[in-house]
């Protein structure tokens, strides 16, 4: 464990907590893409298959449980909670995210480190996570007014993967044989997808104006 990875995990945890806080306290999911939340629940479900088979550390198991429970409960809130579901704007959240699942799965079948079920599901979760934010970014472009919590949520989600890139660089230089192109490239693609959001988020913060994404 290095500081970059710990910071990355804490930032990721913060993004999930910000979202849960928003949904639970103000009972609203305005501006949040259910499709991105469903994709993230699938990412965690396919990535943490080894939750009960490989014990790495208490921290690792605990964080996996937190991410699994939080992502599925967010999906439940938006789908079924009698008040929250009313604020879900399904007419705007129209990204056909199922079109993301199949290509990622096919790619995982072709490009992976080992042709086993667990490894293919793990690789699938990496590719899927890289594109999972797309429905949310599309929704942000459509709903002009991005409230603070939603903006912070997306920012933290992008920041966590950026910190992971620093973690991979650190591990590459400090650990022999630590070379994982699949993880690095999908992590890089994921972070690049946030690039323009980061730019506008930083501009709004610097000029102290409301976050607006160009149509």
């Amino acid at each position: 464990m290095n500081i970059f990875r710990l910071a990355g995990d804490m930032t990721h945890l913060a993004s999930v907590l910000v979202l849960l806080l928003k949904i639970h306290t103000i009972k609203s999911c305005a501006g949040i893409s259910l499709k991105t939340q469903e994709l993230y629940a699938l990412v965690f479900a396919t990535r943490y298959l080894d939750l009960f088979t490989d014990y790495i550390s208490l921290y690792n198991t605990l964080m996996k449980l937190i991410f699994l429970v939080s992502s599925f409960s967010i999906v439940w809130y938006i789908r079924h909670h009698k008040i929250v579901r009313r604020s879900y704007d399904k007419d705007q959240d129209t990204f056909r995210h199922y079109f993301l699942v199949l290509p990622c799965f096919l790619l995982a079948l072709v490009i992976n480190e080992k042709f086993t079920v667990k490894e293919i599901m793990w690789t699938f979760s990496l590719y899927l996570e890289a594109v999972a934010i797309l429905p949310q970014l599309v929704l942000l472009q459509r709903t002009r007014n991005i409230d603070n919590l939603t903006g912070q949520y997306v920012f933290l989600l992008g920041a966590y993967r950026s910190l992971y890139i620093l973690n991979w660089i650190y591990r590459y230089f400090t650990e022999p044989h630590y070379v994982h192109w699949i993880t690095w490239i999908s992590g890089l693609v994921q972070t690049l997808l946030y690039a323009d959001f980061f730019y506008y988020y930083f501009q709004s913060w610097k000029n102290n104006v409301k976050l607006e994404l160009p149509a």
């Binding site: 990721h12 080894d50 490989d54 690792n60 490894e119 793990w122 973690n167």
Partner: peptide, 10 residues
């Protein structure tokens, strides 16, 4: 062991 170590990240 290498595979086991490989998935030590979240």
């Amino acid at each position: 062991m290498e595979t086991f170590l490989y998935h030590d990240e979240l």
